[in-house]
Amino acid sequence: MSNEGVDEAGWDLEPGDESAPLVEAVGRLVRFCREAAGMRVAEFGEALGYGEDMVRKIERGARIPRPEFLDRADEILNAGGHLKAFKEDMEKARYPKKVRELKALEDRAVELMQYSNHNIQGLLQTPEYARALFEMRQPALAPDVVERETAARTARKGIFEREPAPTLSFIQEQVTLERPLGGRVVLRRQLEHLLDVAQLRNVTLQVMPTDREEHAGVHGLIQVLKFADGTAIGRCPGAFNGRPVSDLRDLRILELRYGMIRAQALTPRESLAFIEGLLEKL
């Protein structure tokens, strides 16, 4: 049995993950269907193309089964679609808890403001760019973790397809558009993607030039999400001890700083022209 097949069976469940009860329930269902079909673990694993140990991990809820695993298991065990029915739930469960929580907030937001000073903001990243970032982490992340984090970040892009569309404002430091993280091909595709996203009517994209003598973003990145009920949540690593804030006074400070950065940055039209110029040089 190849290691590649084993690794592709699923993802390890994080300790204390709130999805654990559901994952365990699906594991018990897999076991029930296998036993009802009269198959031993080794026989079932061989039919699937996975190792016996991996099947046992899934059945006891220690590993999140991939959608492909559930598809194949449903067919082999003649489960009548009962295993396939949990594919979407298992896909969501594999994302890290912090990403699921962030996505839940983004799914509710009617307005988002994001200033990024180190790399391209997560919602704007192509899968290739995101993967390159995770592969650069030190200590190095395991390949399975890189894949999981990349898929989780890509899944958040549903915010661009929502109806009614939220108002999205992004400001990127010039250096984030010039540093070829992942290589020049990855950067080219990333810049082309930015130009495509900037064409959406609900999206505003601006560039903060490096040569500005005044800059309100010295505290680092800023993120503010506003919701339909009038509440909001914001974050800035360089302020409020790095913790998320929802107090009106604290939010006002973040909005003030963001507004000043937006005024100091290139206009949206100038920003698109700047990105097009960078593409011509690649």
Rank of each mutant, 00 (worst) to 15 (best):
D107K: 14
R108G: 06
C33G: 03
A265F: 07
F69T: 11
K87L: 04
A73F: 01
V110Y: 01
R94Y: 09
A109P: 09
R72L: 13
P244W: 05
S169K: 07
R184L: 10
D74C: 01
E68Q: 15
G16L: 01
Q172K: 02
N202K: 05
L194Q: 07
G27Q: 02
I76K: 09
G220D: 05
V224D: 02
P96R: 09
A130G: 06
T167Y: 00
R162C: 00
S19T: 04
E35T: 12
L248V: 11
A152Y: 04
T204I: 02
K103H: 12
L279F: 10
R243E: 14
H215A: 05
R249N: 10
M90F: 08
E59G: 10
I171H: 05
A142Y: 04
G182Q: 10
D196V: 13
K157H: 15
N119P: 02
Y50T: 08
T176S: 12
S116Q: 15
P65C: 07
G234W: 03
S246I: 04
D250S: 11
M136H: 08
L200F: 08
P21D: 04
E68G: 08
E178L: 13
E106D: 13
I253C: 03
A142H: 14
S116N: 12
K98L: 10
A109R: 07
M208V: 02
A152I: 05
I253P: 02
R66E: 11
L200M: 15
P15R: 01
L133S: 07
A132Q: 02
Y115S: 00
G38W: 05
R28T: 06
A216G: 04
T150V: 06
T267I: 05
Y95M: 11
A104P: 00
V146I: 15
S19M: 05
A130T: 09
L187P: 12
A151S: 11
N78C: 02
E43Q: 15
E270G: 03
R212I: 08
V146G: 01
L123N: 03
M39S: 11
F44M: 12
Q199L: 05
V145R: 15
L123G: 03
E46F: 13
R252Y: 00
V197A: 08
Q114C: 09
A9P: 00
P166G: 05
L181F: 12
G81R: 02
E88M: 10
L22Y: 06
G183P: 01
R249A: 13
A216M: 10
L266T: 10
G122Q: 13
G242V: 07
D144S: 14
T210D: 15
A132M: 04
I171C: 06
G16A: 04
P127M: 09
M208E: 09
G49D: 01
I58C: 06
F274L: 12
A36R: 14
L205A: 03
T210L: 13
Q264N: 07
R162G: 07
A198R: 14
T154F: 11
E52C: 01
G217L: 03
Q264H: 10
L187D: 10
A9Y: 03
E173V: 00
F69P: 07
A130N: 09
R34E: 03
I275W: 10
H82Y: 04
G158R: 15
L225H: 08
Q125M: 05
L112C: 12
R153N: 00
A155G: 00
E68F: 07
P21K: 01
F274E: 11
G182I: 04
R34W: 01
C33K: 15
R269F: 02
A109D: 08
V146P: 02
T167H: 09
E214Q: 13
